[in-house]
């Protein structure tokens, strides 16, 4: 069985700060990390490898510095890494990104199971996973909190739990398929020393549009149906009323302000 994990490198949001003067997001010096949800995807792939002896791949589309995310995945125990990178891909929205990833998965020979994170912490769209599935016309299961059963005989299938707003759904999905995973699915491991050594020297396969041959009209800015016209910092709440002092007094002050809302 062949398993691929799609990961994205994102700025660590805990470190993101707003410049008080320019009111813009300061990202200088902000560390890049693997999207937190993708760590669970990586861990799940490694568990499948340990249990069933699958071949595992990690794939990211991004600029060359995203290579460090791939090495981190290898240090955890993923077998092979692929960087999908081309100037023509810059500015891709979720439609184009999921197409590029779908074509890459095909180019690499196809997979029985593709695992994505539930969503990326920068864009928060949760669209790329199901988008890949739609491009490849594969079935998908989103918000997976438990891989209950994996059946690898001739009738390959998985049974998964999905974590929904108000309960847990169980689905049976034929392979090949795509799943997106939530935090509840596992506890990601920390890389071993041996893993870190391996990651340092591991070879990273680079895929560009020379291999994928996607038309300009389907990738990058011109292939993306959506476009960002403006980015702004939300108006910060100013003049919040903060009360200090004797509990009896401040509680009355607060109630006086909010009593009409209650």
């Amino acid at each position: 069985m062949r398993v691929a994990v799609c990961i994205k490198q994102v700025p660590n949001t805990t470190e993101v700060k707003i410049d008080p003067k320019t009111k813009t997001l300061v990202r200088e010096g902000v560390e890049s990390i693997i999207n937190p949800y993708d760590m669970y995807a990586i861990e799940e792939a490694i568990r499948l490898k340990e249990k069933y002896g699958c071949q595992t791949y990690v794939i990211t589309m991004g600029p060359s510095q995203a290579e460090s995310a791939l090495r981190e995945a290898i240090s955890m125990g993923i077998d092979s890494a692929v960087l999908v990178s081309d100037r023509a891909f810059a500015g891709s929205d979720t439609w184009a990104t999921s197409l590029i990833l779908a074509k890459t998965l095909e180019y690499l020979g196809g997979f029985d199971l593709v695992i994505c994170g539930k969503q990326a912490s920068d864009g928060d769209t949760a669209q790329v996973g199901p988008g890949i599935a739609a491009h490849l016309k594969l079935p998908s299961a989103t918000y997976v909190s438990h891989l209950k059963e994996v059946e690898l005989s001739e009738n390959k299938k998985i049974i998964v739990n999905r974590l929904l707003e108000d309960g847990v759904e169980t689905l049976e999905v034929k392979l090949p398929a795509i799943i997106t995973v939530v935090k509840e699915i596992n506890e990601p491991r920390t890389p071993s020393l041996k893993g870190k050594m391996r990651a340092k020297s591991a070879e990273i396969q680079v895929v560009t549009n020379k291999q994928l041959q996607l038309p300009d009209t389907d990738v990058g800015l011109s292939g993306s149906p959506t476009s960002v016209v403006e980015i702004f910092t939300p108006p910060h709440k100013v003049g919040g009323k903060i009360f200090h002092g004797e509990p009896e007094i401040v509680v009355d002050q607060l109630l006086n302000e909010i009593k009409d809302l209650l």
Binding site: T13, P225, T226, V229, T233, P234
Partner: peptide, 13 residues
Amino acid sequence: PAFGGNIMARIVC
């Protein structure tokens, strides 16, 4: 909102 609500984006299609 994007970036966990730190920034807002206006998007058109």
